[in-house]
Simulated scan of single mutants.
Amino acid sequence: MATIKDVAAVAGVSFTTVSHVVNNSRPVSADVRTKVERAIRELNYVPSAVARSLKARATATIGLLVPNGTNPYFAELARGVEDGCAQKGYCVFFCNSDDDPAKQRSYLRVLQEKRIDGLILASAGEDAVLAATLAEAREPLVVVDRNIEGLDADLVQIDHERGAWLATRHLIELGHLRIGCITGPVSTAVSAMRVHGFLRAMAGRGIEIPPGAIVESDFSGSGGYRAAAQLLDTVRPTAIFACNDMMGIGALRAAAERGLSVPGDCSVIGFDDIEFGHFTWPTLSTVGQSVRALGEMAALTLIERISGAAEAGAPGRRRLMAPRLIARESTGPLVSVSDVKSLAA
């Protein structure tokens, strides 16, 4: 690999002159610039990003740390972060913690060693050690999706509680009273807020929740499948609110295996509005906001901190995106006993 000294030898100038041309740090004559640029092309010289970052004290890179890279939600979030960074000339280092707090802390150290300019973090559950570590970090930080207790940082997230309330109210307005809820791990703030929205909607209409109607799982398709199977075999709800779309997709599978039509026998609604939900059969009703837009907002919020557009040391800001109801094919009116009799006749 060619070095700056190789370029200087071919161009017949000093290596400091090459540095001035590459970094535009001092004026050089047009003739000298032409010689240096020709030598760079001939040798296919690539300037050292590390050396340049040490001089400029900036790398134009940010770190993105997510808990589950296989979840389409976080894949879409990453794409949004990348889009936002590209607008401002930043690159992204992507790390996946596999929902493991220890791995999350390890990746955080690696990213800091790479001299990133800032960090976007979707946390892998509760971790008191992580909050203390991040509080001491020098780099600007934006937390997305999942808040971290005890940490004062910019936060970008959707209104989880209102989204769950909208989803549950949609089912109630369709005539459903026996509604099951599939939640993610109760240790996460996201799960707690979404369950709270479900409970608030049910209580607001005075609807009793059957025993066993709230089932804890994980935020995966297989987790949703197992939880929905449990609900359908015991509680037998006429509708299910799944606290994310992947669990909702799992619920569609569980219903199909039992010969139940969706939404005829059981309506299903998810949360997040991931792209995959457009292509299930039936298409999945959901609540949410563009996940890519959420990632883009997180990136631009971080770059505001890095560039100084947001005052350094100022208290963390909370940017809350309003959810919307997206009613598709997986939710429909409750078929009453009288309706069934009329159809049979």
Rank of each mutant, 00 (worst) to 15 (best):
P323V: 12
D145I: 06
K341E: 14
L284P: 05
C181Y: 05
S217G: 12
I172H: 01
T301H: 05
T301C: 06
C85M: 11
N68E: 08
E216V: 05
V142Y: 06
V215P: 02
D100G: 02
T280E: 00
M247D: 01
V287M: 02
I179E: 11
K114V: 01
I306E: 09
P237L: 10
G163D: 02
L108V: 06
G308D: 08
L284M: 02
T183F: 04
P263S: 11
E76D: 12
P185S: 07
S267M: 08
A327H: 06
T133W: 02
A310N: 01
H20M: 09
G316K: 05
N244Q: 07
A49G: 15
A312I: 02
D233I: 00
P211R: 09
L54F: 15
I158W: 01
E113Y: 07
V335Q: 13
T16C: 00
E149D: 12
V92A: 02
V18D: 00
V337Q: 11
V110C: 13
C243N: 06
S336Y: 04
R178H: 15
E149V: 10
A254I: 06
P315A: 13
V7Y: 00
Y90I: 06
V50T: 15
L65A: 04
V36Q: 03
A345E: 13
T188E: 09
T183C: 09
S53M: 10
F271H: 14
S14E: 05
P27Q: 13
A344Y: 12
A11V: 06
G313M: 09
R57Y: 05
L252C: 07
A122V: 14
S14K: 06
V340C: 08
M297V: 13
E329N: 11
A201H: 06
V190H: 00
A203D: 15
V190T: 15
V21F: 03
V335C: 13
E136F: 04
P72T: 11
L166P: 00
F93N: 03
L199A: 11
R292A: 15
L302C: 01
M1P: 12
G221S: 09
P323E: 05
A189G: 10
T188V: 11
A135G: 15
F15M: 11
V142E: 08
N24L: 12
D154L: 02
H170I: 03
L151P: 04
S25E: 09
S53C: 12
Y225T: 05
E82P: 05
L294P: 07
D83N: 12
D245L: 00
E42G: 03
Q157T: 14
G313C: 08
N71E: 03
G150Q: 10
N96Q: 09
E136S: 13
T59I: 05
Q289I: 13
G89D: 01
Q289M: 08
G248Y: 00
S220N: 04
P72Y: 04
V142M: 07
I249N: 00
A192R: 13
S106A: 15
R105I: 12
D233K: 08
M297A: 14
H170G: 01
Y107K: 09
V28C: 11
R305Y: 04
K114G: 05
L134N: 10
A293R: 14
N68F: 00
